[in-house]
């Protein structure tokens, strides 16, 4: 806990050149943050991303699969996995303060809901009730 009587913000003297922002807050890790992943995980993440991308393009070239009902859902699921992996590991949301998760997932949910609602409103998707 910092000293509430501190009369002024303190610039870290190690900033030879000031940062590209306004804040003077330092860089100490917050207790809620877990350590970020390292090269060992990063390379696996990259490999998984590459493999999924190859799989996505692969199924695009299988006419029977493209014609099947599974094509669109499987593409959506694969890209959602890629999306989630990048956000969780590369953007280290998984290891960060929960506030950042709220700041990102809240808008993301509203955005995805809006896309789906607009698809319905413009008749690009429809529910068949029988």
């Amino acid at each position: 806990m910092a000293d509430p009587h501190t009369p002024a913000p303190v610039i870290d003297p190690s900033h030879a050149l000031p940062p590209a922002g306004e804040s003077t807050a330092g860089h100490a890790h917050h207790p809620d943050e877990k350590p970020h992943p390292t090269w060992k995980q990063y390379k696996w993440v990259a490999l998984i991303l590459a493999v999924i991308t190859i799989a996505e393009v692969w199924i695009y070239y299988i006419p029977a699969f493209v014609a099947s009902r599974l094509f669109v859902p499987s593409l959506l699921i694969m890209s959602a996995i890629k999306f989630a992996i990048v956000v969780m590991f590369y953007m280290h949301l998984r290891y960060d303060h929960k506030l950042f998760r709220v700041l990102f997932t809240g808008p993301l949910i509203i955005a995805i809901t809006s896309v789906i609602a607009l698809m319905f409103l413009f008749g690009q998707v429809a529910l068949r009730l029988q």
């Binding site: 807050a25 506030l99 993301l108 809006s114």
Partner: peptide, 25 residues
Amino acid sequence: MHYTATGLDNRKIAIWAFIGSECML
């Protein structure tokens, strides 16, 4: 370190809010 209510850096909160905004864009 300068006191902040969450212990987080202002700039990081702002960039995440910006990214949230970009989701809508």
